[in-house]
Design a protein around this nucleic acid. Structure first.
Lengths: 137, 137
DNA sequence: GTGATTGCAAATCTTTTGCACTAAA
DNA sequence: TTTAGTGCAAAAGATTTGCAATCAC
């Protein structure tokens, strides 16, 4: 079932984003139904499939606004394309190189011992672990 | 001082790459003098500065051929640009987001305990840890 | 109304490609 | 020779931008 309309709407308002038709529609595609990893192209395609008129430029803008607002997290695994993750909590990723698919690895499944201190004048913003996978045989 | 010409030449031959003028020049820029992280644009600029005539397309080709031959490793930290690392041994990276700079973290400075098993039908190709840094204050 | 948001098309940036030319073996 | 490698300019793909039209408040 779709998350109640008002919940998405409130979420946008809380983030200081005007709940426009486009943002509401994209937010529902993104946040209804579990954790997702999308590219701008994929989300735009889903919007069109759902008969939501939205330009690709707006999809890019929206993804970045949502990311700035903390609703999404950008994942860098492929230098050709940006992925956005609806799971903004601490966790890591499997990256299936053959298909371009991305899967979450829950935080507790990886233990990082002995992390180096950040260089002077800097602070650790995030530690990303990407487990790159090949197909067997 | 520059590594002896023949050493670079032999390294290319050993990798099955014809030691052309362009490849030799780029190899010397890359492999003389310690570990480096370059983008195609940067390496092309260095070549021009060193009065080596080489096209950007050839720089891209060469970086990929060197990577395929195991002389370089590609690092994904920025979805807009590809970085290549002359250090091909196992290690990780600091990424200074404000400057786009990349620094090696020796392998033993990070201990990965309890890695998840790869999903059925896949094999772990590599585990990349990127420590993303912000400037303080 | 008024300022934020959107769409569109054009621009930008990185990277790849096609193909005639050049150079290594 | 013969085949791999190169340069150039054009193409491709992802993303951003400028600006007039539209929408939320």
């Amino acid at each position: 079932m779709a998350r109640p309309y008002t919940q998405v709407l409130e979420r946008l308002r809380a983030a200081g984003l005007r709940p426009t038709r486009q943002r509401l529609a994209l937010a529902r595609l993104l946040f209804d139904g579990g954790d997702r990893h999308v590219t701008a192209e994929i989300l735009h395609g889903e919007a069109l499939d759902a008969a939501v008129r939205v330009s690709l430029a707006t999809v890019y803008n929206t993804l970045h606004q949502f990311t700035a607002a903390g609703l999404l997290r950008e994942i860098v695994v492929d230098s050709q394309r940006s992925y956005f993750d609806t799971n903004t909590s601490d966790h890591h990723h499997f990256f299936f190189e053959s298909s371009g698919r991305l899967d979450d690895i829950p935080n507790e499944r990886i233990v990082l011992a002995r992390l180096p201190d950040p260089p002077k004048g800097t602070r650790v913003k995030r530690v990303d672990v990407v487990v790159r996978l090949d197909d067997t045989g």
